[in-house]
């Protein structure tokens, strides 16, 4: 006999009187907005909406991979976006958020969920969440790539060193994406959490110190997740707007 129905029969779906639905609605809405925006900007519009402006390249396309055999209608972002998509989809924080908002599993704490049966992450497809470690390795490779993109934004061919609003935006974005990656639960585990003895050697003591630092960052993983998600979206939008002549970038260069 399913007890969930017992609870509902006795007490209804929930007796919470606070507005518990605001959080899943807000965060779910935010995620959805980002997914729609990034799909349109990076995948659907792709090559037909300029994503390079002077020294700036939209982070959705960094590093730019555009071999000749790829037809024009395929966006170069497809060679890039699988990595952050995989990393964020399997991220422990995003999992919490979209399980609550999209799968209503559960919609809120102590709120009855609609599904009749449940096997969590023990079966396909959710067992694939274990790939988070793999995506972490990829994400780590992306940190220097994004910094390279940010530094490149301070160098205009022909004119040399300079700075513009775009360079600052891309730098902030690289920093936030780095912090999101560094605050990852999986990295925290790799750096020290997997040890049972921290005091056993100088090497493990050092790893404990690194673990302490990453643990501090990890406490705010949610914050880094949202900050970097918003920053990467805004950076993409900014570069596009400049590249397509909607905005003019304020900068120190004379000819851009």
């Amino acid at each position: 006999m399913a007890q969930a129905t017992d609870i509902q029969r006795r007490y209804g779906k929930t007796q919470r009187v606070d507005r518990w639905w605001i959080e899943p609605a807000l965060f779910g809405g935010g995620l959805l907005a980002f997914v729609i925006y990034s799909t349109v900007s990076a995948l659907i519009l792709g090559n037909s909406w300029h994503f390079e402006a002077g020294p700036y390249l939209s982070p959705f396309f960094e590093p730019l991979i555009k071999p000749g055999w790829v037809p024009e209608w395929i966006s170069p972002a497809v060679f890039i976006l699988w990595a952050p998509l995989g990393f964020r989809t399997t991220c422990y924080y995003y999992r919490r958020t979209y399980y609550r908002s999209f799968f209503m599993s559960p919609p809120g704490c102590a709120v009855t969920e609609p599904a009749k049966s449940y096997s969590g992450e023990s079966k396909f497809p959710f067992i694939l969440q274990n790939a988070h470690r793999l995506f972490l390795y990829v994400a780590l490779v992306f940190i220097p790539i994004l910094w390279y993109g940010a530094l490149k934004a301070f160098w205009l061919d022909g004119e040399g060193l300079g700075v513009g609003v775009g360079s600052l935006i891309l730098t902030a974005n690289a920093f936030l994406l780095m912090m999101y990656t560094l605050s990852c639960h999986s990295l925290r585990h790799l750096i020290g959490g997997g040890l049972d003895c921290f005091s056993c050697s100088n090497y493990t003591r050092t790893r404990r110190k690194a673990w302490d630092i990453l643990s501090l960052a990890n406490e705010h993983h949610k914050g880094w997740a949202w900050a970097s998600l918003i920053s990467v979206g805004l950076a993409d939008l900014y570069v596009h707007l400049v590249a397509n002549g909607v905005l003019t970038d304020l900068n120190t260069w004379s000819n851009f």
Binding site: Y99, C109, G120, F126
Partner: peptide
Amino acid sequence: FGLDYCNITKC
């Protein structure tokens, strides 16, 4: 003990 039943929704 069913660790992978948990979907880390943190309640």
